[in-house]
């Protein structure tokens, strides 16, 4: 039994249907639990209560990037092995990724206002996320513009590939263009730069929660896409007969 068997739509529907309630439940517990725990943490000596935005900001930012990577992987699987579910999963993930990027940008703005005194700063990290949002929008627009699902899957796959290269390229070009205000990585492994454990553990929990939330949404949306394609397939066959 190989992992590719889940590329079979029937098998995918059965397995995902079994996983879905567990994923949804775990996502609800981890996300609300992590956020509540985070809300009850003490205030930071420098940032005050605004530090608690981190429990939304960092998990959303993390997922915004991870979802694009997942889309890239799914697109590669589609382009190389022609598994239809994979293409639909990439399509299903894109709006979730775009919303995660928006959350990261919006919470960043709300956080930046009290900290840096501005809603928006052309800081490398912020700019990179704005660019990432543009790539998400382009990807979704291309999916919705093409009627034929086979062409749409192929073309968005190629776009995702080229877009990934340019997203990384833009990331480093932006670094060259402007050194920013944003702090370094929130979860750096270097000693001394780490967040205190008081904040770190609830943050880990919300990150897990956001990951499970994405998994839940991805499964629901992919199942919807599969059903929509099945409907279209039945209609196409009826037309032909």
């Amino acid at each position: 039994m190989s992992i590719w068997e889940y590329a079979n739509p029937v098998k995918f529907m059965r397995t995902s249907g079994a996983i879905l309630p567990w994923a949804a439940g775990a996502a609800a517990i981890c996300t609300t639990g992590g956020l509540l725990w985070g809300f009850l943490t003490p205030e930071d000596y420098k940032q005050g209560s605004t530090v608690k935005i981190v429990f939304l900001h960092v998990p959303a930012a993390m997922m915004a990037i991870n979802i694009w990577v997942m889309m890239l992987a799914a697109s590669l699987i589609w382009l190389i092995r022609r598994h239809h579910v994979s293409a639909l999963a990439a399509k299903a993930a894109a709006p979730v990724g775009a919303v995660m990027t928006l959350i990261a940008l919006a919470t960043g703005a709300v956080w930046g206002q009290p900290m840096w005194g501005t809603w928006w700063e052309w800081d490398p990290r912020l700019t990179s996320f704005l660019i990432l949002l543009l790539f998400y929008i382009g990807y979704m627009a291309l999916w919705s513009a093409i009627d034929d699902p086979d062409s749409a899957a192929d073309l968005t796959g190629v776009l995702c590939l080229v877009g990934s290269v340019f997203a990384i390229l833009s990331r480093y070009a932006v670094l060259f263009w402007n050194q920013g205000l944003h702090q370094g990585a929130s979860l750096s492994v270097a000693p001394g730069e780490r967040m205190s454990a008081v904040y770190r553990y609830p943050l880990y929990l919300t990150m897990l929660g956001f990951f499970l939330l994405f998994l839940t949404l991805l499964l629901i949306r992919t199942r919807t896409e599969i059903r929509r394609r099945r409907l279209a397939a039945l209609q196409a066959r009826e037309m032909r007969a």
Partner: peptide, 8 residues
Amino acid sequence: AGFNEAFA
């Protein structure tokens, strides 16, 4: 051959 056959 395509999505329409894969999901029929």
